[in-house]
Simulated scan of single mutants.
Amino acid sequence: MTCDLHVAIVDYADAAASLHAVRDAVFLREQGVPGELERDALDPLCRHALALDPDGHPVGTGRLVPPFLADPDRAEARIGRMAVLRPWRGRGVGDALLRALVGEARARGWRRLMLHAQAPVIDFYARHGFLPEGPRFMEAGIEHRTMRLTLDTAMSVETRDGALAAWLAVLASARRELAVYSRDLDPGQLDQPPVLTALRRFAMRGGHARILLQDPAAAQNALAPLIGLAQRRPSAFEFRAVEDPTDRGYPSAYVASDRGGWFFRPLGHRHEGELRLDDEVRARQLRLAFEPVWERARPCTEFRALGL
């Protein structure tokens, strides 16, 4: 994140001018959202996150609508009005704002969060653990999709899009180590551009992924793009093939990080499973179960020889 950036939760009455300076620039002038849609009666009742540059100028905003106002029937808070001035995008401002809003929700005991993500930033929210739900839709003339996050408990992953979001979340949460147990490099998941980009970023920041496979030949025959990435970043990715009959009968698949994130699928050939990003106990259990299987498995030397 940019040095000296200050992000705080603020009251609307104290910071309205700063909040609207950013929101007007992004929503009204840049995106063409009608003013009557951008401003509403909820603002004074919400908690707001405000990002200030080193000179004290506002550069980013977001708001948290309390559950009893956002959706009383579902008892979930809603994050919205996320906006960052163009010169500050890609510098960690949005991440800091979202972390501040999620932290505020947790502090207030609001465990269920939702938001309407603009289509270009769906992956951004996925990296923070929000899972997509339902079809895309138009709101204020812009394509959106509903996304949800449940704090302090595992979330159900039910769709292919949800599985992709779960991978992005775990990869973003990892510090240096990943343990991956896969049947055949998960076609439809580990071969998708957003996940490959996240794996490349993980490698570039010094990460190391150990990947156990039950069927390396299937991945090799399918020209799985992760194999090519691993050849370009051999210090970041290490593959082994499961050969012990008991290990080969294991039906599940998972990824576990060194920071408490995990995505577990009971049936490894399906997308459905559970995700959580702050459960060190379960993540450690998966990594401990991974170790003896890794020791019994053979190195996938055929991957190193494959010329992609």
Rank of each mutant, 00 (worst) to 15 (best):
A241S: 15
A222D: 11
P234E: 11
A203Q: 01
G260P: 09
P216T: 03
A218Y: 08
G261L: 01
R233I: 13
A172F: 02
D186P: 03
T246P: 00
R265H: 08
L226G: 07
L229E: 03
S252Y: 13
G228D: 03
G206K: 12
Q192M: 10
V180W: 07
L199I: 01
Q189V: 15
R183G: 09
D191K: 00
A172N: 12
D247P: 00
D247F: 12
V180S: 09
A203C: 04
A253V: 13
N221R: 15
G188W: 02
P194K: 09
Q231L: 13
R233F: 15
D247S: 10
L275V: 09
S182H: 05
G249D: 11
D184G: 04
A179L: 05
I211M: 09
L229W: 09
P266C: 01
F237L: 11
A230H: 07
R248S: 05
Y181Q: 05
D278R: 13
E272I: 12
D258E: 13
Y181E: 02
S235P: 00
L185Y: 02
L277G: 02
R201D: 14
Y250P: 00
L277Y: 14
R183W: 12
V255Y: 03
P266R: 14
H208W: 05
A198F: 00
W262M: 12
D184S: 15
G249M: 12
A256V: 05
R205T: 07
L185D: 01
L178Q: 06
F237W: 02
D186L: 02
D186Y: 07
P187T: 04
D244T: 10
L196S: 02
A219M: 03
L275D: 08
Q220P: 00
P234A: 11
P266D: 09
G268I: 02
A219G: 14
P266Q: 10
A219E: 01
E272D: 13
R248V: 07
R259P: 00
E238C: 03
H269R: 15
S173C: 11
W262L: 10
L213E: 08
L267C: 12
G268M: 14
L185G: 04
E274F: 14
R205I: 10
F263M: 01
V242M: 13
G249T: 12
Q192T: 15
A236L: 06
A219F: 02
R176H: 12
R175E: 06
E238A: 06
V180K: 04
S173M: 04
G273L: 01
M204E: 15
D186N: 14
R233A: 13
L212N: 03
L277T: 08
A174P: 06
E238W: 10
V180I: 15
A224E: 02
